[in-house]
Amino acid sequence: MSSELNTIIDRCRSEGLRRTKALEELLATLLESERPMTLAELAESSRLVNQCDKATVFRLLQRLADKGIVRRLGLHERAAYFALLVPGRHCDYLICTSCGNIETVNAPCPVRDLEKEIQFTTGYKNLYHELEFFGTCPACAA
């Protein structure tokens, strides 16, 4: 088990979540994923498909989101995507308003310097931001 995964599990425990095999496998799946995942993708992943049912995955995701360990992304009428919030790791997202697909923005974050300036001028600690861009993906635009 990676030290990053152990750190996240320790954070879960400090937030009052029970350490279970299903929780470990869910966190490991999200940690290894290069993009946010839907409930269906998570429940059908190789780590979870034989570990627990979709309802259990959903309940775990809700608890993790409530504790600020997982972020729910997506348009309200579309399937939700879930991404692990890892301190020091930052992702911005592109969200298609037609199909609901979500991709990670593969470009330098334009808000980093502004975030540092705001932290310096306001005195806020542990400042972070979340940035989402909405539009029509190439497949839907065709």
Rank of each mutant, 00 (worst) to 15 (best):
S3C: 05
E4L: 08
L5M: 03
L5Q: 04
T7V: 02
D10L: 10
C12Q: 00
E15S: 11
E15N: 15
G16S: 06
R18P: 13
R19W: 05
T20Y: 11
A22C: 03
A22R: 07
L23M: 13
E24H: 02
L30T: 02
L31E: 08
E34D: 13
E34W: 02
R35Q: 15
M37Q: 15
T38F: 09
A40E: 15
E44F: 10
E44Y: 11
E44W: 10
E44C: 07
R47P: 00
L48F: 04
L48V: 01
V49Y: 13
N50E: 08
N50A: 12
C52F: 06
D53M: 09
K54W: 07
K54C: 09
K54A: 09
A55I: 11
V57G: 01
L60I: 00
L61N: 03
R63M: 05
L64G: 02
A65I: 01
A65N: 15
K67G: 06
K67M: 10
G68V: 04
G68W: 11
G68L: 04
R72A: 11
G74Q: 06
G74W: 05
E77M: 12
A79P: 05
A80T: 02
L84S: 01
P87T: 01
P87V: 01
P87H: 08
G88Q: 12
H90W: 11
C91L: 12
D92Q: 13
L94Q: 06
T97D: 06
S98A: 12
C99K: 05
G100S: 04
G100F: 10
N101A: 14
E103H: 13
N106F: 07
N106K: 15
A107K: 10
A107Q: 14
C109E: 06
V111M: 07
V111T: 07
R112K: 14
D113S: 07
E115Q: 14
K116A: 12
E117G: 03
E117Y: 04
I118W: 13
Q119K: 09
T121V: 14
T121I: 05
G123A: 04
G123C: 06
Y124F: 10
Y128D: 13
Y128N: 10
Y128H: 11
E130F: 04
E130N: 05
L131P: 02
F134C: 00
F134Q: 01
C137G: 08
C137W: 07
P138T: 08
A139G: 00
C140R: 03
C140F: 14
C140W: 11
A141L: 13
A142E: 15
A142Q: 12
